[in-house]
Design a protein around this nucleic acid. Sequence first.
DNA 1: CCAGCAGCCTGTGCGC
DNA 2: TGCGCACAGGCTGCTG
Length: 275
Amino acid sequence: MPELPEVETVKEKLKPRLINKQIIDVSVYWPNVIANIPVAEFENNLKNQVFIDIKRRGKWLVFELTDYHLLVHLRMEGKFFFKSRTDEKNKHEHVIFRFEDIELRFHDVRKFGKMYLLGKDDLSTAKPLSELGLEPDDDNLTVDYLKDKYKRKNLSIKEALLDQRIITGIGNIYADEILFLSKINPYRKAKDLNSRELKSIIDNTRSVLKQAIIKGGTTIRSYVSLDNKKGEFQNYLLVHGKANLPCSVCGTPIIKEFIGGRGTYYCATCQNKKR
DNA sequence: CCAGCAGCCTGTGCGC
DNA sequence: TGCGCACAGGCTGCTG
């Protein structure tokens, strides 16, 4: 499901409702969600913890608690809902955080989502955040940085944009949009791109993600931020999901093909150079 | 080190 | 209607 704009939206919506709330009790119903410690330990450690802040790193939600950091990755379908204690448990709700007045439930149809419970100090050096590349808005994200990261890789630029160790936060939808706006063919080798093209990718990454955040993310099939709120950016997509529809710039039908196993949409005329 | 591919899961939409 | 297959905003772990 979510890429950077969707996770950012979830974070902002959770914040006002979660900060300063104290956990009474946690129940895990699908143990594989908890990635780094036994479920019993996860449940016990979270008792009485207070939510101090919520941040985002790449596609990870980072909940700062009294004594821990709780990291949550929504993967394809993970969602949070606030529900009343008396609401019946949905079969896709795998973790329930209970507060005095309400419950926060983690809902994940495909069970791909992951949670880590870590100590307070070792965040940036410990898995899973230690391997992540630069945030798109980081000033260190430059043409030279990308040149250096791409030079040894024999990857297409589409695959390279999805590599979270280089830039973090871009997923399949926004990678297609970024390449369309940059007029770069998704099959081009990342290492073959020139400075002007890399600059264009950086600029368009920033502008697309920023616009998507303003619109509350993109809902194509299942994404909702909180309490079933959909995004609006799907109304502004230019190529992703537009197979056979005319390109908004030149009218050529948009092509869908698989690159690196992921459905990839592009305009063969506007993104023409294929090397 | 790398590329490629199965695996993790369930649901939906399509063609027959 | 039903059945089977392909595919879905992601990432890990295995193989060669």
